[in-house]
Amino acid sequence: MALLEVEDLKKYFIQGDLVDRLLRRVRTVKAVDGVTFKLGKGETLALVGESGSGKTTTGKLVLRLLEPTGGRIVFDGVDITRMKEGELRKLRPRMQMIYQDPYASLNPRMEVGRAIAEPLVVHGRASWSEARREALEMLERVGLTPAKDFYRRRPIQLSGGQRQRVVIARAMILKPNLLVADEPVSMIDVSMRTSILKLLLDFKKEYNMSMIMITHDLAVARLVAERVAVMYLGKIVEMGPTEDILHNPSHPYTEALIAAAPTIVPRARKPRLRIKGEIADPSRIPSGCRFHPRCPYSDSSKCIEKEPQLRGDSRIVACHYPLTR
């Protein structure tokens, strides 16, 4: 059974103040515009796309850190779409989030050890002295040793990688079933990225945790995720098993992302597809297929007029003329 089921999830932001409203200049930003997926227990799904694709908003909606405009979120059999915050709070320890900027996600004035221990106390799972002991074990576990020394430090006294380890420790001390990781390594020094990813994978295995990895980097997605969902302007345009998608993309946008990924391999056999321009403003989504203005294959009126629907079973794609090989 799936741990998480998301159905036709939508998030629209209304932009504009009173004056804009009077002048009828209000814009609706469709950040997430109908996203559907399932996540199995112990499975990792990568949400991949450029900034403005709606991947981070999707991650926050799933955890109900944002109020959805429409759709349904079912977590472990319970519909949490409209659940009240008080009730949700009891579920929150089971679903955790890690952010891109580890410094911003920590209270700058709090000792990091205390920050790790506190969730246990807040949720009544331990007394302060027990929580302290568990936090010390956790520090050890995430490689911040000597733990006693690190316990007392403030976030500013740590490196970026160490801070992200603290954030991971704080989320993992609650032993969650679901983790949403939003670009967890994009602000981390390159030499420490894989060790952070490995840490996440170790926890995933240990807790049989499901994970949503939000990333712009296909190579990172490949290292951690069994499945990939490629997002464009608030919609999933292609989804399927990671290796399958990377070797055999169906959507031109997926292929363009693969072609754009830099590689260290000399004379790598990259796809040649190059696309122009940049992702559109999500308050002015193009008609028909939302990718058509950038798509080198869109020469038919069909792409401009009719929105393609997601089709397929294990491999799904939303394109009128999917690539075949």
């Binding site: 955890l63 850190l65 949700l88 709070r89 009891k90 579920l91 929150r92 320890p93 679903m95 955790q96 989030m97 952010y99 900027d101 911003a104 996600s105 920590l106 209270n107 700058p108 004035r109 709090m110 506190e118 969730p119 807040v122 949720h123 954030v167 704080r170 989320a171 609650l174």
Partner: peptide
């Protein structure tokens, strides 16, 4: 509106704890 308070919400902290233990000292 900062990320760290959102992170505390995602950890399931009650408002009272967020306000008194985290926002007030700051």
């Amino acid at each position: 509106q900062s990320v760290f308070v959102e992170a505390l919400r995602s950890l399931g902290y009650p408002t009272r704890v967020i306000l008194l233990r985290h926002i007030l000292p700051n």
